[in-house]
Amino acid sequence: MTRLSLSAALNSGLRHVLEEDPKAIVMGEDVGPLGGVFRVTDGLSKDFGAERVIDTPLAESSIVGTAIGLAMRGYHPICEIQFDGFVYPAFNQIVSQLAKMRARTAGHVPLPVVVRIPCGGGIGAVEHHSESNEAYFAHTSGLRVMICSDPQSGHYLLRQALACGDPVIFYEPKRRYWEKGEVSDDLSLAPAFDRAVIARQGSDATVVCYGGMVATCLEAAGYAQEEGRSLEVIDLRSLSPLDLDTVCASVRKTGRCLVVHEAPGFAGLGAEVVSGVTERCFYHLEAPVLRVTGFDLPYPPAKYENQYLPDADRVLAAIDKLLEF
């Protein structure tokens, strides 16, 4: 166990991958000597060379597109998209090429490509640097969508993402990059990459969340405890496919469920969780499943983001509604 920031834990995950898998390649804008704008690739080009840690031209479509070609050739690329809002130029390559190649070639061309995307707000950034666009990719058949919430989940999930052999959109909540935690690099202890984990046990209500919102919900659960309310917090980790088994086992126990995410609510991941829980746990539910999400606005200028983003208070207000229903 070592105490690392999320950024350093991801860096250590990438080191493992580059050491253990000679076909692994890290590629993206400024990932070389600079180490990426969030330093996730710090030191990698020095240790593994420019052939394996590639500073690419500024062309997101081709970052994913050439990674696809490299994967066809037997390489295992891990691409970095510099910020969430800049993945859209690569949308066609991700949605029509990366996601569909395996199916359209009847399984002949698997594409083990990981696309890392720093995501979400909370860092006072300028426009296009705070978005949560996971629903676009979760809606696309043929992709796995994973999101880490803390240093340990980041380290494990990133290594698992490349090893799983399928295309993975891998989100890293940038507001958590510098938060530290204990990190083990023993992959045999990691939960399966497609499983949700219970981040905190509780009995009165289930709070389903992911990414940057996990810490927010844990904070809310701490306050709730002081008021004698016991919240079970579930960190989804895999957004596609969803681990509804873990979520529903919890909801059958608590009878109440709240879903929390930063992304706008309409047609978001939360709606999918609500539907899954309602279908599977209808007779266990004591209240409608509720959501706390970002508003259906373009991500606002930085000075508004504290009001825009779900925080512990908004989570607790929803918990009040849920428990009093």
């Binding site: 479509s61 081709s62 994913v64 597109g65 050439t66 990674a67 696809i68 070609g69 490299l70 994967a71 066809m72 050739r73 037997g74 390489y75 690329p77 066609n92 390559q93 029509s96 090429q97 190649m101 359209r104 070639t105 061309v109």
Partner: peptide
Amino acid sequence: AYTVVLAAHLPHATGYAMG
């Protein structure tokens, strides 16, 4: 495979060549 999305296969070719 044939690629119908115009030019989408050109970055693939470049990437394959990098391999």
